[in-house]
């Protein structure tokens, strides 16, 4: 498995590069974080307090030394503590990351359950009324920004119809039903773009697979239409669909910010936004690093899954 080992090595390298860039960006940008942190309303902060904070943050140490201690912290899983409330960054991430992942998983589930069957049907009935309507709907869904959909969902389902709560979060263990009703609207908002992407990709990919010689061979063998469809058309067509889905799920890792904001879903982005406003550097760095690492990891996993699906890749 030399191929997989090399692929994992490249991923680790990328995570290291990302960590370094985030670190350097914060330290090389003009302006003293300590001074920025303490200044409010354009009033110059007390020099004594700034010096004390610089000392506490380790900002007086040489850059190289700060870099090494930052990296060794990352390796040990120590991402520091929040400048605002001294809460450990890692704990905050571990608490909130599962909620964000749940949102993405729910959106992806909707996308797969709706997008793949609809895309396959549209390809099989190419040019039919269903194909035209579904394709048009997909174009519209792609065009509506996610926060617009979210806001409109709140307006219609929470404000006008009053069927759903406008937002919030209850742990699953506490009240499973309430948890799911609160999950429904944000998952729908996340799923809307994914559905369109999965639908389009499935349609194109199934159309391509249908025209392949091996599908003709499958039919020449006398296989039933459903078996030809499942084993020879959809099985081959799914590979690019999964790749695209994974790519988009990756972008969603950061992209849930808007949905979490609209629905007041306490995922990773709430502390991120708060930290951005408060210039809580350890928190920003910790969250950005976590998400980027997950992003790289997801791409890695997808490559491995891809290789399992398409035997040709393992030998390339």
């Amino acid at each position: 498995m030399g191929w997989a080992a090399r692929r994992i090595g490249v991923s680790l390298l990328l995570v290291w590069v990302v960590a370094s860039i985030v670190f350097l960006a914060i330290h090389l940008v003009p302006g003293d974080p300590a001074e920025l942190l303490l200044s409010s309303g354009g009033v110059a902060p007390d020099p004594g307090a700034v010096a004390e904070l610089r000392d506490r943050l380790g900002l007086n140490l040489p850059l190289a030394q700060q870099y090494v201690s930052f990296l060794s912290g990352v390796v040990r899983g120590d991402l520091g503590t929040s400048l605002v409330d001294e809460y450990p960054v890692l704990d905050e991430i571990l608490l909130r990351l599962p909620r964000t992942l749940e949102l993405i998983a729910a959106g992806a589930l909707i996308a797969v359950l709706v997008g793949i069957p609809a895309g396959t049907l549209a390809a099989l009935r190419r040019g039919s009324a269903f194909d035209r309507i579904a394709s048009g709907l997909a174009a519209l869904l792609l065009a509506v920004p996610v926060f617009v959909v979210g806001t409109l969902l709140v307006l219609v389902f929470a404000q006008i119809l009053r069927w759903m709560p406008a937002g919030g979060y209850v742990p699953l263990a506490e009240d499973p039903w309430r948890h799911l009703t609160l999950l429904a609207l944000p998952a729908l908002a996340i799923g809307k773009g994914l559905v369109a992407v999965v639908f389009r990709m499935t349609r194109a990919s199934v159309l391509d697979a249908l025209s392949r010689d091996f599908v003709r061979t499958a039919r020449a063998k006398g296989l039933s239409p459903s078996r030809v469809l499942m084993r020879h058309v959809v099985r081959n067509a799914l590979i690019p669909v999964l790749t695209v889905l994974a790519l988009h799920m990756g972008t969603l890792l950061g992209g849930t910010v808007l949905v979490e904001y609209v629905f007041n879903w306490p995922g990773l982005s709430t502390p991120l936004l708060r930290a951005v406003e408060a210039r809580d550097y350890p928190m920003v760095v910790g969250i950005v690093l976590t998400i980027s690492a997950l992003f790289v990891l997801l791409n890695l996993v997808m490559d491995l899954v891809y290789a399992a699906l398409d035997p040709r890749i393992r030998h390339a």
Binding site: V257, V276, R279
Partner: peptide, 19 residues
């Protein structure tokens, strides 16, 4: 490839924090 390691919204948030 490094730019592509960051989800777009995240990169934007990072830069907005700094600048």
């Amino acid at each position: 490839d490094i730019v592509l390691c960051f989800p777009p919204v995240l990169l934007a948030l990072l830069v907005v924090t700094l600048l």
